[in-house]
Deep mutational scan, measured.
Amino acid sequence: TYYTVKSGDTLNKIAAQYGVSVANLRSWSGISGDLIFVGQKLIVKKG
């Protein structure tokens, strides 16, 4: 599943919304830090 980052989103908010960890969200999407951008597509795998 892809999630497109919206204004005001954080990795914590997105992870909580999908019931996954921030570490997994980073790993799946190839992100090393906490910086995400509006319009960026993140990969989300539901448990």
Rank of each mutant, 00 (worst) to 15 (best):
Y3R: 01
S29H: 04
L11R: 00
I36F: 06
L25A: 00
L25S: 00
G30D: 10
I43A: 08
W28K: 02
S7P: 15
N24H: 10
T4R: 08
K46L: 15
I31T: 05
S27N: 12
K45F: 14
K6I: 09
V20C: 10
L25F: 03
G30H: 09
G19K: 10
I43Y: 10
D34Y: 09
L42M: 07
K45H: 13
Q40Y: 04
G30M: 08
I14L: 07
V38M: 07
F37Y: 14
S21K: 06
I36A: 03
L25Y: 00
Y18H: 12
K41N: 09
G19H: 10
Q40T: 06
S32G: 09
K45M: 13
L35E: 15
N24P: 00
V38C: 08
I14H: 00
G8E: 06
T10F: 04
V44L: 09
A15V: 02
I36L: 12
Y18A: 06
K46P: 15
Y3F: 03
Q17T: 11
Q17F: 13
I36S: 02
Q17N: 10
A23I: 10
R26N: 04
G39E: 03
D9K: 00
S32T: 14
T10I: 04
W28L: 07
I31P: 02
I14R: 00
T4E: 10
V44S: 02
V22M: 08
S7I: 15
V5K: 01
Y2A: 08
A23T: 10
L42C: 03
N24C: 15
S7D: 14
G47F: 13
V5H: 01
A15K: 01
G33K: 06
T1I: 15
I31N: 03
Q40P: 02
F37S: 09
D9I: 01
I43S: 07
T1F: 15
S7V: 15
G33A: 08
I14T: 00
V44D: 03
V5L: 03
F37N: 08
L35R: 12
G33P: 03
K13V: 09
Y2G: 06
Y3P: 00
D34R: 06
V20D: 02
V44R: 01
A15I: 02
I31Q: 03
Y18F: 15
S29D: 02
S27W: 10
S7Y: 13
V20G: 01
F37H: 11
G19N: 11
T4A: 07
A16Y: 10
F37A: 09
G39N: 06
I14W: 02
K46M: 15
G8C: 05
L42G: 00
S32M: 11
L25W: 02
D34E: 10
D9T: 01
I31H: 04
S32C: 12
I14V: 08
S27Y: 12
D9R: 01
T1G: 10
K41T: 12
D34H: 09
G19Y: 06
I43K: 09
I14P: 00
Y18T: 07
Q40N: 04
T1Q: 13
Q17A: 13
Q17K: 13
N12F: 14
G30A: 08
I31C: 05
R26K: 15
G30Y: 07
K46N: 13
L35A: 14
Q17G: 07
S21M: 06
S21R: 05
V20H: 02
V44Q: 01
N12Y: 15
G33C: 09
Y3L: 04
G30Q: 10
F37I: 10
S29M: 05
G8T: 05
K45W: 13
I14N: 00
D34K: 07
V5Y: 03
T4N: 06
I31W: 06
K46Q: 14
K6S: 07
S32D: 13
K6D: 04
Y3S: 00
K6E: 08
Y2L: 10
L42K: 01
D9C: 04
K46E: 13
V44P: 02
G47S: 13
V5F: 04
S27T: 12
W28D: 05
F37W: 11
I36T: 03
Q40D: 07
L35D: 15
V20N: 02
T4L: 10
D34Q: 08
K45I: 11
G47V: 13
K46T: 13
G33H: 08
Y18P: 00
L25K: 00
K45D: 11
G39M: 03
Q40W: 06
T1C: 15
L35W: 11
I43W: 11
T10N: 08
A15C: 06
G39C: 04
S21H: 06
F37D: 07
L25E: 00
L11E: 01
L25V: 10
I43V: 13
V22S: 06
V38P: 13
K45N: 12
W28C: 04
V5M: 02
T1W: 15
L25P: 00
S7Q: 14
K6P: 01
L35G: 11
K41H: 10
N12Q: 15
K46V: 15
L11N: 00
Q40I: 06
V5P: 01
Q17E: 13
K46G: 14
V38A: 10
K41F: 08
V20L: 08
A16C: 12
D9V: 01
G39Y: 04
S29F: 05
R26D: 01
L42I: 12
A15E: 01
V44T: 07
Y3M: 04
D34G: 08
G30K: 10
A23V: 10
V22L: 09
K46Y: 14
I36D: 02
T1H: 13
G33S: 11
G8H: 06
V38E: 11
L35S: 14
V5S: 02
S7R: 11
K46H: 13
G30P: 04
G39V: 04
Q17H: 11
K45C: 14
L25I: 15
G33D: 11
A23N: 10
L25D: 00
V38W: 04
I14Y: 00
Q17R: 13
G33I: 07
W28V: 05
D34M: 09
I43L: 15
S32I: 14
T4Y: 14
K6W: 03
N24V: 12
K41W: 07
N24A: 12
D34F: 09
S32P: 08
Q40E: 06
G47E: 14
Q40A: 05
I36N: 01
S29K: 02
I14E: 00
L42S: 00
G8P: 02
I14Q: 00
D9M: 02
I43C: 13
A15R: 01
T10A: 04
L25N: 01
S32L: 11
V22E: 09
D9A: 01
K13C: 11
V20S: 03
N12P: 13
K41S: 09
V5C: 06
V38T: 08
R26Q: 12
W28T: 05
